[in-house]
Simulated scan of single mutants.
Amino acid sequence: MVVRKIVKIDEIRCNGCGSCIPKCAEGALQIINGKARIVSDVYCDGLGACLGHCPQGAITIIEREAEDFNEEAVKHQKKKTEPKIEQQVIFQWPVKLNLVPIKAPFYEKANLLIAADCAAVACGSFRDSLMAGKRPIIGCPKFDDARAYAQKLAEILRQNNITAITIAHMEVPCCSGLKWAVDKALEASGKEIPVRRYEISVSGEINEL
């Protein structure tokens, strides 16, 4: 252990937008539980290439006791993690609510992620924080018919074994139609399915409601 320069992330300021991740060539940063974090001190060279890319000003360089930067460990980590990025796949296609089938094998015991279609664009960590392990269905209640959404979702819930629902919508008022559609669909389906709801701010912050 030596005293050296290393990145520090202010977890209060960090909103998990993920802007810093691609700027760290060493792969020292990852989004974990909705916040950017240093995976290991040995991956951070302390040069601060990520500094100017945090819109929240959550990243600083400090001096503290830490393990030495290890270039060989960085190379090993990259080899280990790169295939995982390639293997991140969508479990079904299509994903638009207007296009998905009412009954399909991919719904079996699924945690259904019903999201506003602009949410993934607004939130850099959307895939890691909200989509992992879920079956995504996206839509826009502002430009589509929320009543039609509710009717189709009701049939999907009625005809398939859905075990959980996650709603992810923007903080803007028009997105409230997504929750309304899910509520109406659950009521019409006659099923009791646990629901978690997340609101995404226009700056990319994820908040559970």
Rank of each mutant, 00 (worst) to 15 (best):
M1H: 08
M1E: 05
V2C: 03
R4C: 02
K5H: 01
V7A: 08
I9Y: 15
E11G: 00
I12A: 14
I12L: 14
R13M: 15
R13W: 14
C14D: 15
G16L: 12
S19G: 13
I21D: 14
P22Q: 14
C24Q: 08
E26W: 08
A28P: 01
L29G: 09
Q30M: 09
I32W: 07
N33S: 02
G34K: 01
G34C: 09
K35I: 12
I38W: 00
D41E: 09
V42N: 01
G46S: 01
L47H: 03
G48L: 02
C50S: 07
C54Q: 15
Q56I: 14
I59C: 15
I62F: 00
E63Q: 02
A66F: 04
A66D: 06
E67K: 05
D68H: 09
F69R: 00
A73K: 05
A73V: 04
A73D: 12
V74P: 06
H76N: 09
H76C: 04
K80P: 05
E82C: 08
E82Y: 08
P83H: 05
K84A: 03
I85L: 15
I85Q: 10
E86I: 14
E86Y: 13
I90R: 03
W93T: 11
W93V: 14
V95C: 08
K96M: 13
L97E: 11
N98S: 12
I102M: 04
F106L: 12
E108I: 11
C118V: 12
C118G: 12
A119H: 13
A120V: 12
C123P: 14
C123R: 15
G124T: 15
S125T: 05
S125V: 10
L130N: 00
A132Q: 13
G133L: 06
G139P: 12
P141G: 05
P141D: 06
K142S: 15
F143I: 12
D144G: 04
D145E: 05
R147I: 15
R147F: 07
Y149A: 12
Y149C: 02
Y149N: 05
Q151K: 11
K152A: 03
L153S: 06
I156S: 01
Q159S: 00
N160H: 03
I165E: 10
I165G: 11
I165A: 10
I167Q: 04
A168N: 06
M170F: 03
C175Q: 03
G177A: 01
G177C: 07
G177I: 01
K179V: 04
A188Y: 03
K191Y: 06
K191H: 05
E192C: 01
R197T: 09
Y198H: 07
E199M: 02
S201P: 05
S201C: 02
S201V: 03
G204F: 11
E205W: 02
E205H: 05
E205S: 05
N207I: 15
L209W: 11
